[in-house]
Simulated assay, not measured.
Amino acid sequence: MSKPKVYIDGKEGTTGLQIYERLGGREDIELLLIDEDKRKDTEERKKFLNAADLVFLCLPDAAAVEAVSLIENPKTRIIDASTAHRTAEGWVYGFAELLPGQRQRIKFSSRVANPGCHATGFLSTVAPLIELGVLPRDYPLSCYSLTGYSGGGKKMIAEYEAPDRDPLLDSPAPYAIGLCHKHLPEMRQVAGLDFPPNFLPVLGDIYKGMATTVMLQNHLLNGTPNAQDVHDLLAGYYQDQKLVQVTPFGGAGPRLYTSQLAGKDSLEITVSGTQEQTLLTAQFDNLGKGASGAAVQNMNIMMGFEETAGLSL
């Protein structure tokens, strides 16, 4: 049996390079590589897009939409890492552990939208609690998400790593302060919320890592659970998952570190709090489970490989 052919459109970007690193040494696929001087040649790209069994799109939104239009081979399957198709009809959301049956939907789909990094952290805690009937769909949610600068791509990486960089970059920087971050549509739609959350991302002076936090008032939850109850619900929900784990209640210590899972493709949820309030924090690598690691996991599911093949646990 021939090896499936895989093509990364946009391999030169941060996400594309990280996917390539995870796939470059694998012997169970044939990685198609376009000539460097032709990577922006539409006709040449079209040949590769249609020759592949599976394509990763690591492109800006408009370019990702264009790339999909170039694919005429009905057997070519797509994983889009851009924002373009995350709430689009006909596309499956690529977070296998998130909802019942989601892994099977990914397995049999020809069009999979890779989740956004902030959305991954938010949804990992919020969506299960809604699915379990604990968190009301009209709950007034607030979320903040600490992230490394690599998620901003090559331009932001260069800005942070310049020898003469602005001293202000030493300090954490809230951004998207107009409360209209591009991940909000998927956060609301996939979770099934009546309203989008108040969401504040915060950029830190670390290369990669992410800690996404949601705070809950327990008296507004169905059944009025305490923090321990919420922990136990999430621990049961993610039981036996290889890439999403819930840490023991009360065992996290006084601090959580944004870069704790940097270099890993897994995600850890910490639940803490009291009888009255609950704190939910998802820690992961914004380039791992938040981007390229999730994309490779989705490829593994779609192609019938071991789900964690090529990933760092």
Results as ranks from 00 to 15, higher is better:
208 K>E: 09
222 N>S: 06
232 D>Y: 09
212 T>P: 02
236 G>F: 01
209 G>I: 07
220 L>I: 09
221 L>F: 03
211 A>M: 08
209 G>A: 14
224 T>K: 10
233 L>H: 12
210 M>Y: 00
234 L>E: 05
230 V>L: 02
210 M>V: 12
233 L>E: 15
229 D>A: 11
215 M>W: 01
213 T>R: 04
221 L>R: 12
212 T>G: 13
216 L>E: 00
223 G>N: 05
207 Y>T: 01
213 T>L: 02
217 Q>W: 08
220 L>N: 07
231 H>S: 07
235 A>P: 03
220 L>M: 10
226 N>W: 05
212 T>C: 15
206 I>G: 02
234 L>M: 14
224 T>W: 02
223 G>V: 02
230 V>P: 03
236 G>M: 08
214 V>I: 05
208 K>S: 06
221 L>T: 10
208 K>V: 02
206 I>T: 12
220 L>R: 15
233 L>M: 14
231 H>W: 10
233 L>I: 11
228 Q>H: 14
209 G>Q: 09
218 N>T: 00
220 L>H: 11
213 T>F: 02
218 N>M: 06
207 Y>V: 01
215 M>H: 03
224 T>E: 08
206 I>V: 15
231 H>P: 13
206 I>F: 07
209 G>H: 06
212 T>Q: 06
227 A>I: 05
214 V>H: 00
229 D>E: 05
215 M>Y: 01
215 M>T: 11
233 L>C: 07
236 G>I: 02
237 Y>C: 05
214 V>P: 02
230 V>H: 08
218 N>Y: 12
208 K>I: 03
231 H>I: 15
235 A>I: 00
231 H>M: 14
221 L>N: 10
206 I>L: 14
209 G>Y: 05
213 T>G: 07
230 V>E: 06
223 G>S: 04
207 Y>C: 06
231 H>L: 04
228 Q>E: 06
216 L>I: 09
226 N>V: 10
221 L>W: 01
231 H>G: 13
214 V>G: 10
219 H>R: 14
215 M>A: 07
213 T>S: 12
228 Q>M: 11
207 Y>W: 14
229 D>F: 03
213 T>V: 15
232 D>W: 03
234 L>C: 02
219 H>P: 02
209 G>D: 06
213 T>W: 01
235 A>V: 03
211 A>Y: 01
223 G>P: 04
225 P>N: 08
210 M>R: 01
225 P>H: 12
210 M>A: 15
232 D>V: 01
225 P>E: 01
220 L>E: 01
230 V>A: 03
220 L>F: 08
232 D>N: 11
235 A>H: 14
233 L>A: 11
211 A>I: 03
229 D>W: 12
209 G>L: 04
214 V>W: 06
